[in-house]
Simulated assay, not measured.
Amino acid sequence: MIRMRGKRNLGDSLFDWGNVLLMVFICFITLYPIWYVLINSFNDGVDAMRGGIYWYPRVFSLESYEAVFKNKGLMTSMGVTVAKTVIGTVVHVLFTAMVAYGVSRKDLIGKNIYMLIGTVTMFFGGGLIPSYLLIRDLHLLDTFWVYIIPAMFSFFDLIIFLTFFRDIPEGMEEAAKIDGANDLKIFYRIVLPVSMPVMATIAMFHGVFQWNDYFTAVIYTNNPDLQPIQTFLYRIVALSGSNQIASVVPGNVVRTVTSQSVKLATMVITTVPIVMVYPFLQKYFVKGFMIGSMKG
């Protein structure tokens, strides 16, 4: 019996090798575009215009990165992006978790109505013009808080929190109430500490959104000091022609780089920081992503 279990027929071996080759192919087509951008960003801009760079830089150069970092607006934009990502993520996670905890209470009056209204907002929106008029009337135009306040709450994230909160044993909260804790103390001292997996998941989702969001600044701000890094990249990509790129690339560096090389260098600079955060949240992210798939 042991020998029979250890044997594998030709069909099983071919199936395993087919899976391996398929996964290698998927990994390659997923990672190669990133590698292509990276190696071309480290290549001399003028030389890269000849093409034929596929696996490694042909003429290694850091001049494209030098051109980007010499731009005064880059560090300002990076600071705005880091600030709105950190503050926006913390506020979003705490506020959405607080609302979700309230909605998860069985004795909440009008709970079904709130859920119905929230569900409708997931499928239907007011549109850009009403949103702009609302932001204007709230006096959020050309302010830093335009990145924070409209993104404080997400009904989709509330549903994820609800799924997790329903699995918290009721005995924990009942014991806390016997000890004299109110709902606010229970939320901050019991619910939040045991909700790290789902909080890390929501933080990852919203943090990536805040980091990558460029559209908010394009629509709601005119102040260059409030421009995030993704809007900075958007405006570089939108430029065309050597005269326009000269306004982005200062000094005599413009003679040795191209608009394409500056775009690629800026893309790498804006992507690396958020990618480096993921490994620190991975263990929580995997647990939170599987919330609701099984009980235990």
Rank of each mutant, 00 (worst) to 15 (best):
P57R: 10
L133D: 05
G127H: 07
M115P: 00
P57G: 13
W55L: 15
H92G: 05
S104C: 09
N112S: 09
W55N: 14
Y54E: 09
K72C: 05
R58T: 15
T121C: 12
G52N: 11
H139A: 10
K111I: 05
V82I: 09
N43C: 14
D107H: 04
T76N: 11
T81R: 00
M115Y: 03
Y101P: 05
R3M: 04
V90G: 03
N19A: 14
G6R: 00
R136Y: 07
V91Q: 01
M115D: 08
H139G: 09
A100V: 04
D142H: 12
L10P: 02
K70G: 15
S41K: 14
F123W: 04
V99Y: 00
V91E: 01
R8D: 01
L94R: 01
I39E: 05
F144S: 08
I29A: 06
L31Y: 14
L116D: 05
L94M: 08
G102P: 01
K72V: 07
T81D: 05
T89W: 00
A97P: 07
F69L: 13
G11W: 14
K111T: 02
V82F: 00
L38D: 08
V103G: 01
M78R: 03
P33D: 13
D12R: 04
T121E: 10
I53D: 12
R58H: 15
G110M: 02
I135L: 10
I87V: 06
F144K: 13
I53N: 07
L14A: 15
F144V: 12
G79C: 02
G18K: 08
H92V: 02
A100W: 04
S41H: 12
G52T: 12
T81I: 05
F15P: 06
F144L: 13
S77A: 14
